[in-house]
């Protein structure tokens, strides 16, 4: 069986600027991976290519052997780093929209989480606080039964208690057939749930290892290692 995600010699340039520079990595199933790197290192560019929103300048991305397109979107659940759902629809409408859009969407799961976090179903997205908006977006994405979840900064705007809830949601939703890629700066919050971390610097993978090996080899947390590797 082919790997869930393969990046082969992936390069993306914006004019003079190289965002991804011949990047290679592969990812199997059943993992939770942290995609970590300083601002401007190429994380979001990589994520956008995986989701077919950008095309590579050269090299390619394969998801279960296929290049990003209609077929891969059926198995990839993507949480962008900004609000992607407009302002006026209500939470309830959005759930119905997702039911129409994605065959793998599980509305009962979405409602369960929405109710648990006490977000009124009939409220319009624009009336919700920044954190609650983010929660709704994340709930919708996590309620899909996808093969690959790609979460770009999922916990940045929410309070620590909700962060814990989101993390337990990710763990609860874990299954050996799917993988989750999480891009974040809040490393210490997220590192206990990660299998692997990928450090990106200047559009290149500088480290790809399991969290426990990092702790064993370096005797420090991923958060501390990050601060060391990316020290100015």
């Amino acid at each position: 069986m082919s790997d869930l995600l393969q990046c082969i010699d992936l390069t993306k340039t914006y004019g003079q600027i190289t965002a991804l520079n011949n990047l290679n990595f592969t990812l199997g199933s059943g993992k939770i991976i942290g995609l970590l790197g300083p601002n401007g290192s190429g994380k979001t560019t990589l994520i956008k290519i995986i989701n077919g929103l950008l095309t590579p300048t050269s090299g390619k991305v394969l998801i279960e052997g296929k290049e990003p397109g209609v077929e891969t979107k059926k198995i990839v659940a993507y949480l962008p780093d900004r609000n992607f759902l407009g302002k006026s629809p209500t939470v309830d409408k959005l759930v119905k929209l997702f039911v129409d859009f994605y065959e793998d969407f599980r509305p009962e799961l979405a409602y369960e989480m929405i109710d648990k976090l006490q977000i009124p179903r009939n409220s319009q997205l624009k009336t919700l606080s920044k954190g609650n908006k983010e929660k709704v977006c994340l709930i919708l994405v996590m309620s899909r039964n996808a093969k690959l979840y790609v979460l770009d900064e999922p916990i940045a705007g929410v309070d620590p208690a909700t962060r814990d809830y989101i993390i337990s949601t990710i763990i609860n939703n874990y299954n050996p057939d799917s993988s989750v890629i999480i891009s974040t700066h809040l490393i210490s919050d997220i590192e206990p749930v990660l299998n692997d971390v990928v450090f990106i610097k200047n559009g290149n993978v500088v480290l790809h290892n399991t969290v426990d090996e990092i702790r064993e080899e370096h005797g420090m947390s991923v958060d501390e290692l990050f601060r060391e590797v990316f020290k100015w």
């Binding site: 059943g30 993992k31 939770i32 814990d164 993390i167 337990s168 763990i171 609860n172 874990y174 206990p192 749930v193 990660l194 299998n195 969290v211 426990d212």
Partner: peptide, 11 residues
């Protein structure tokens, strides 16, 4: 255990 401890089930 994974949920309680907040860690990855593989771990």
């Amino acid at each position: 255990i994974a949920v309680e401890a907040g860690v990855n089930p593989n771990t």
